[in-house]
Design a protein around this nucleic acid. Structure first.
Lengths: 209, 209
DNA sequence: ATTTTTTTTAACCATTTGGTCAAACTTTTT
DNA sequence: AAAAAGTTTGACCAAATGGTTAAAAAAAAT
């Protein structure tokens, strides 16, 4: 029965996603994934021959979804400020739902770059097509900033405090989970403010190399 | 002979540091550490009874050194701009020498928070004593920004692009290692510029909660 | 209804890995 | 020089883990 098959596969995928993202490829145990999916370990191997294959499958699904959203975000006709707003807003939401994701990607890209970049390629994440128009738009709106700085700085401020949750939560917020989460949500506004203030400074500069 | 003992211990510590930082606690193999130190695996267990103990030892050494430098950086009588400069400069240098460090700490803090925070405590990293004076100084220099935003944003921009090296290097710099490293070094200036431009914006704001 | 195919399970296997132990070798003490 | 203490090694062990296999159970095809 195909329906049953799909159901089992879904259960496995969901369980695997959780375990892989939390423990990484090395730390994840096939037994734990099987338990979480409520099935036998052998069945795991029946559906996805090896751990590697299961991992690749899960990772591709994740990356595809992210690449998709990223693409639809960066369209023409949207002002820089609104792009920053949209980007920060969307990514904080995604990351709050998947707080282990950044850490997970950083890990796996070190452990096994090929697998990860195959995933990126499949998700059609192509920076050339992304940076060129952005550079033009920045110049058009009078911001004389290196587009790489602009993107990387914004990305850093969004991702890092979420990737570093365990540390911030404890060191800055004394273990108060709600205070931490409220703070991250408040960053939806404050990051945009910070970035736009900074961009204002770049307006005064002459066009640079 | 004590000298011999210290030599062996040094060799082990150096090998363990490399392997742990690159592979994490889970991925690290005692055999690999032994090989790298040029000794027998049994000797590893002779010096540090268990993997956990070896790990704790290495981690504490790392954290102590970082906490030390952080402390001496944030002294009174240094302007905000110069603190930003000093901080960015020092941390980019440290991180370029230990590019796996951020990722490593983020990982291990998720895997085993207690061990990590014991290390932090031992290194006397105390945010209360850090944020209060900083908040005063920011106000005194007319920057009406939440000190947490100021610190976290700066920290993010320094750490994230280095933690994410494998991704940036490939996606933004097409695998050109030198281009990537030059870019990171160029950030010593550009991050300070970006932060100070942003701070300029906060000067106009009324004092807020 | 019965044969065939697909799905699921329990038992088992090979390898890896952290860790132990007794013996050998070195250094220090007496 | 002999004994004692400390250091280093190779052989070995138990547990964990990814993966296999043969058989049972369920579903689909005939």
């Amino acid at each position: 029965m195909t329906e049953k098959e799909i159901l089992t596969e879904e259960k496995i995928a969901e369980a695997a996603r959780e375990v892989f993202i939390e423990k990484g490829m090395d730390g994840a145990r096939m037994q734990e994934i099987a338990d979480k999916a409520g099935i036998n370990k052998s069945l795991l191997h029946y559906y996805f021959r090896t751990k590697e294959k299961l991992f690749a499958f899960i990772f591709l699904k994740l990356i595809l979804r992210i690449g998709d959203r990223l693409g639809s975000l960066m369209q023409e006709g949207v002002s820089i400020e609104n792009k920053v707003k949209g980007f920060v807003d969307l990514y904080i939401d995604i990351l709050l739902k998947n707080p282990f994701l950044p850490n997970f990607i950083l890990n796996e890209v070190t452990r096994n770059p090929e697998a990860i970049f195959e995933g990126f390629a499949a998700a059609k994440i192509e920076p050339q097509k992304f940076f060129a128009p952005l550079e033009n738009q920045l110049k058009a709106e009078g911001y004389n900033i290196d587009p790489r700085d602009f993107v990387i700085n914004t990305l850093s401020m969004v991702i890092f405090p979420i990737a570093g949750r365990p540390i911030l939560e404890r060191i800055v917020f004394n273990g108060d989970k709600k205070a931490y989460k409220d703070y991250i949500l408040s960053r939806k506004k404050s990051i945009v403010e910070f970035v736009m203030f900074a961009l204002e400074g770049y307006k005064k500069l002459e066009t640079r190399v």
